Simulated scan of single mutants.
Amino acid sequence: MTNDFYCDEVLSGNTPVDKVLETDNVLAYYHTKPSYPVHIVAIPKHHISSLITLEENDNQLLLELFDVIKKVAAMVTEAKGACKVITNLGDYQDSKHLHWHIISGKALKS
């Protein structure tokens, strides 16, 4: 098991998602198990392990990813007044696929 929810489940179509914004190389969708009232995830459509494993040939993809993150963050900020954009690394990164969380509101109790 690769511990890559995004490749194994989302991008493969095994887990359906509610899309927010999609380009040829990037997908932003509502988190399947949200921790915040607004919890959107943005991912590249091909596997990159994390922010610190990006290579020079990923620069164009990274620009496209950040353009999607910027647009989604602007939509959330317009609707809710504020948002946070977060990525995790190392042990904080549950799924070993580069992803960014766009969140707004107080954390939901689990």
Rank of each mutant, 00 (worst) to 15 (best):
E64W: 09
K84L: 07
K96V: 11
I69K: 08
E9S: 10
C83V: 08
L11Q: 07
K70D: 15
P37N: 07
L98M: 12
E22V: 01
D8L: 04
T15C: 04
N3H: 09
T23F: 00
V68H: 05
P37V: 06
V72Y: 07
K45A: 10
F5K: 04
D8F: 02
G81L: 07
K109E: 15
D91T: 11
T15G: 00
H47E: 14
S35P: 03
V41K: 00
A73M: 14
V26E: 10
T15V: 00
T2A: 10
A79T: 07
V41W: 00
E64K: 15
L61Y: 14
D18L: 02
I69S: 03
C83Q: 07
G81R: 04
T87D: 04
P44I: 10
T23E: 08
E78D: 09
L51K: 01
P44L: 12
N88V: 03
T15K: 03
A42S: 11
G90M: 04
H39C: 10
G105P: 02
K19E: 03
I69P: 06
H97L: 14
A74W: 09
L21S: 01
D67N: 11
H39A: 05
P34V: 05
I40V: 10
G90T: 08
S110Q: 08
D58W: 13
Y30H: 11
T2K: 12
A82I: 09
T87C: 09
V38K: 11
L27Q: 01
K84F: 12
N88Q: 03
L63Q: 13
S95N: 09
K109Y: 03
S104C: 10
E64C: 14
P16S: 00
S12G: 02
Y92F: 08
S50K: 05
K96N: 13
V20T: 09
T53N: 15
Q60K: 14
H39D: 13
E9K: 13
A42N: 08
A79S: 14
L27Y: 01
I52G: 04
L98H: 07
D24S: 12
P16Y: 04
L27K: 03
V68S: 03
L98W: 08
K70P: 00
H46G: 11
V20F: 01
I69V: 13
V26D: 06
D8V: 03
